[in-house]
Design a protein around this nucleic acid. Structure first.
Length: 882
RNA sequence: AGGCGCGUGGCUCAGUGGUAGAGCGCUUCCUUGACACGGAAGAGGUCGGUGGUUCAAUUCCACCCGCGCCUACCA
């Protein structure tokens, strides 16, 4: 595509722009339901249209894209379906806040206009998010983009709601629910975040009707006493038994209420007597149902006390609490105030303290739905990764409670239920009914509540494919193969998809669920805008490039853990992208000449890198198959940096300088780089495409993203080459260490004699002499059977060899002695340990034979090394040497 | 309260029943035509504590301590 030479440093901004459009316009992201190839399907966890993508999205979606690109390169017809979530309460809040800035409330606009305004916001926010998804390089099939309030998906929502109703699994009734006084709506249990906070436990006296002592109750919420309809004690509690059946006088209001017995009362807690406020406490509500007690609601939907609150009507709940406590104190009814940790529920979206409130809501009966879901997981039809999440899922499912699905909001799917104004008949229907089926009346009023936003997202794997129509997409891509999302929405979303998918789409929604952790800052702290430690993916992209961010996120993705993302880690992987870029630059500078097939007896470096490439390929494949993105990233990092760049590229320079070897060397260099790029592509799509497009190619696929993912070729695994290369490396490092230890001038070429006892060893050194000279910076290299002796020579054992360097003013003998002395200590220590172990009869008898054998080998090896070290030390005139 | 997870070099984290690894940071040296977002050579850890299983424990088990997350109707 572009032929100008590569910039010296990788410039992500220049490169990234070009490729996304090319991929998208070429149709590489588009799944083909008619394809004969194996399919692979997954859906995006649809981002909320509340703003823009955050790092948590980038994390999950990057890992999904790695899987999607990998599967696509492996030849699968891959569908990764994009979409957005209307996010009822969250989005409504955003728009309400905007209105507030204009001094308006949603009521000032009215429902219809408010909804129009939210739709405008949805376009804006949604557009921004879709753009961000493209910048991240995600290979989403944009021809199938969905929104949870699209007509197609809304139809699925009505179908499922009515279906549940017809199956008797939806009911409406007056129950205590979690209520957010600020949002003015009911919340599900999951939308409440409970936190223990410092509060008080007030002991309040309720006098007997005859003015006697009565009973002292303990409560954390004195303001609710206005709605008390009883006091309960434990039936076996001696202290209060005489009161059961009598009446006490409610303070403030003077109402008489009965003392009842019920074993739900904890005798240990407080005074052993509890006030019963059925309309304002979930527990009390249940008790009241058991005991046949009435409820009195003393609060409205805004948390303000109502006409039942007597003198406190019109006061806010917290204000009323203070005032009531003051009054009780004044009347001598406040017996005691003790500090107490109170678990307080907060609205997940706005953090307001949640109020348990008795109201008419719609619920889904969960137990009948949960059973098939549990079975599906037990039977392995759905697999959780990491597997530990399976237990969490079971725990939740087995203790499932009914799901409150109605919300008193304006933004969302309006519940398809109508009430006849004439006869009060409730009609639940897929389409608006023309007349009341009971009385024929024409005045039908639709329910004003909307559904919990998770109701529609719970259908996402099939509603997006056209369900309830039996579309081709549905037949081909349902169930999905894979689902990935944050561990924090296992219950919110994953559990509901499983339950609803099984019930309505007839099968599990996906086969494998990967639950990822929460992205934290570099010190493992939770990210938050208020703390200012949050990372904006777009900002990272702008500064370091998309590939660096993607690779970092993948490298952090250890299943089951929360990744800690910091600038330093990012910089490290940014450097890696640059390293790859420069390796490619080197290759491109050297690939111009003639190329010959890599056939016949190849030089060691070529055989070695090809062998290592197979190992890396196999390791990456294995890692991805197990969703070990971190392992895949690490394997590639080390292959490219340590093996390809540090050793192979240096060694291949020697081959390229040899006119006879160069043509084959170019081929191996090209093939190795090309295959490494394909292995890296799912993790860093942009830089790999950019480089790949510049490589000399004849025909083949038009993009690396549709090129085949490499498979390890066992024929290229060369154990002899790996052993030999290890020996060569050992020699090079040994000589370099000598140079560094004695501070030989970096550019000074030193003359070295390498000696080895066996002819084969000497032959090896002779054969590798050019490489050895280049990598170790040697002048002359002599090979001998025995190292030259004499006090003017430094001799250093390296593996099976001995390296001898004439000092000729190069070395500091004292430094050498110190270093060898340290090495001697280390070797002796290990030797001592091994000998001790081998001297232990039990070890020799019971340990695995190969462990014993290898220990013996190691001892022989160490003894030989020790002998040489001591020989050298003696030659240097070490006073301690024996 | 219950469940789950974590505690490995200065920081963030891999890993393993049998000689402790990485990245960053640190020390010394080096601008040699791929790369200073670089190269070379190094220093640095009794793998949270105590017991147990084992020939052998950082790795398995129990308990404890510290941290985090999730679920809970003790007002």
């Amino acid at each position: 595509m572009s032929n100008e030479p590569l910039a010296k440093a990788y410039e992500p901004q220049d490169v990234e722009k070009r490729w996304y459009r090319f991929w998208e316009e070429s149709g590489f992201f588009t799944a083909d339901a008619a394809s004969p190839r194996e399919r692979f399907a997954l859906v995006i966890p649809p981002p909320n249209v509340t703003g823009s993508l955050h790092i948590g999205h980038a994390f999950t979606l990057t890992l999904q894209d790695v899987i999607a690109r990998w599967k696509r390169m492996k030849g699968c017809d891959t569908l990764w379906l994009p979409g957005l979530d209307h996010a009822g309460i969250a989005t409504q809040m955003v728009v309400e806040r905007q209105l507030a800035k204009e001094g308006l409330r949603k009521e000032d606009l009215g429902r219809e206009e408010f909804e129009a305004r939210v739709w405008r916001w949805k376009e804006e926010s949604g557009g921004r998010i879709l753009n961000q998804l493209r910048l991240m390089g995600y290979s989403l099939d944009w021809t199938r983009e969905r929104f949870t309030m699209d007509p197609m998906l809304s139809r699925a929502v009505r179908e499922v709601f009515v279906g549940l109703w017809e199956q008797g699994l939806v009911y409406r009734g007056d129950y205590i629910v979690n209520w957010c006084p600020r949002c003015g709506t009911a919340l599900s249990d999951l939308e409440v975040e409970t936190e223990a906070e410092a509060g008080s436990l007030w002991h309040i006296r309720y006098r007997a009707r005859d003015g006697g002592e009565g009973v002292v109750v303990a409560t954390t919420r004195p303001e609710t006493l206005l709605g008390d309809t009883a006091v309960a004690v434990h039936p076996d509690d001696e202290r209060h038994r005489h009161l059961v059946g009598s009446s006490v006088v409610l303070p403030v209001l003077g109402r008489e209420i009965p003392v009842v017995a019920d074993d739900f009362v904890d005798r240990e807690f407080g005074t052993g007597a509890v006030k019963i406020t059925p309309a304002h406490d979930a527990n009390d509500f249940l008790a009241a149902q058991r005991l046949g007690l009435p409820s009195i609601n003393v609060m409205d939907g805004r948390g303000v006390l109502n006409e039942n609150a007597g003198p406190y009507a019109g006061q806010d709940r917290f204000e009323a609490r203070r005032n009531i406590v003051a009054q009780l104190e004044g009347e001598g009814l406040l017996v005691k105030t003790a500090p107490h940790q109170v678990p307080l529920g907060h609205c997940q979206r706005c953090d307001t303290v949640v109020e348990p409130r008795l109201s008419r809501q719609w619920f889904v009966k969960m137990q009948p739905l949960a059973e098939p879901a549990i079975r599906a997981v037990e039977e392995g039809r759905i697999v959780f990764v990491p597997a530990s999440e399976t237990r969490v899922f079971f725990e939740w499912m087995r203790n499932i409670r009914d799901w409150c699905i109605s919300r008193q909001l304006w933004w969302g799917h309006r519940i398809p239920a109508w009430t006849c104004a004439a006869c009060g008949e409730l009609v639940v229907a897929r389409e608006e009914p023309g007349a009341c089926p009971k009385c024929g009346g024409g005045d039908l009023r639709q329910e004003t509540d909307v559904l919990d936003t998770w109701f529609s997202s719970g259908l996402f794997p099939f509603s997006t494919l056209g369900w309830p129509e039996r579309t081709r997409d549905l037949a081909r891509y349902y169930p999905n193969d894979f689902m990935m999302t944050g561990r924090d929405i296992l219950f919110f979303w994953v559990a509901r998809m499983i339950v609803l998918g099984l019930r309505f789409a007839g099968e599990v929604p996906f086969r494998t669920v990967f639950l990822n952790g929460l992205v934290r800052d570099e010190h493992g702290e939770k990210m938050s805008k208020t703390k200012g430690n949050d990372v904006d993916p777009l900002d990272v992209i702008a500064r370091h490039g998309t590939d660096a961010l993607r690779f970092t996120l993948a490298a952090l993705a250890n299943p089951g853990n929360d990744p800690s993302l910091g600038e330093r880690r990012l910089l490290g992987y940014k450097a890696f992208v640059n390293k790859l870029w420069n390796a490619a630059r080197f290759a491109l500078m050297n690939l111009d000449g003639e190329r010959a097939p890599a056939a016949g007896a190849l030089p060691l470096a070529s055989r070695w890198i090809r062998s290592r490439l197979q190992a890396a390929t196999a390791a990456v494949e294995r890692a991805l198959a197990e969703f070990r993105f971190d392992t895949a990233a690490n394997e590639l990092y080390h292959f490219v940096w340590d093996e390809l760049c540090d050793w192979y590229l240096e060694a291949v320079k020697v081959l390229l300088a040899d006119a006879a070897e160069a043509p084959r060397a170019r081929t191996v260099l090209l093939e190795t780089l090309e295959q490494a790029l394909r292995l890296l592509h799912p993790l860093m799509p942009y830089v790999t495409e950019e480089v790949w497009q510049r490589l000399p190619r004849a025909g083949g696929p038009p993009s690396i993203m549709v090129a085949p993912f490499p498979a390890a070729d066992r024929a290229l695994v060369d154990e002899a080459a790996e052993r030999e290369m290890a020996t060569l490396m050992e020699l090079v490092v040994g000589i370099r260490t000598l140079r560094a230890t004695y501070e030989v001038e970096p550019r000074r070429r030193i003359d070295v004699t390498v000696s080895g006892a066996a002819p084969a060893e000497r032959g090896f050194v002779e054969a590798q002499a050019p490489t050895l000279r280049a990598l170790a910076g040697l002048g002359t290299l002599a090979v001998a059977e025995r190292a030259p002796g004499g006090p003017q020579v430094i001799r250093q054992p390296v593996g099976p060899f001995e390296v001898a360097v004439p000092m000729a003013g190069l070395f500091d003998i004292a430094a050498e002695r110190t270093r060898l002395g340290k090495e001697r200590l280390k070797v002796s220590a290990e030797l001592e340990g091994l000998r001790g172990r081998l001297g232990n009869a039990q070890f020799v008898e019971r340990a695995k034979p190969e462990v014993v054998a290898s220990s013996r080998e190691r001892v022989a090896e160490l003894e030989e090394r020790l002998r040489r070290i001591e020989g050298t030390l003696a030659a240097l005139g070490d006073p301690e040497a024996a």
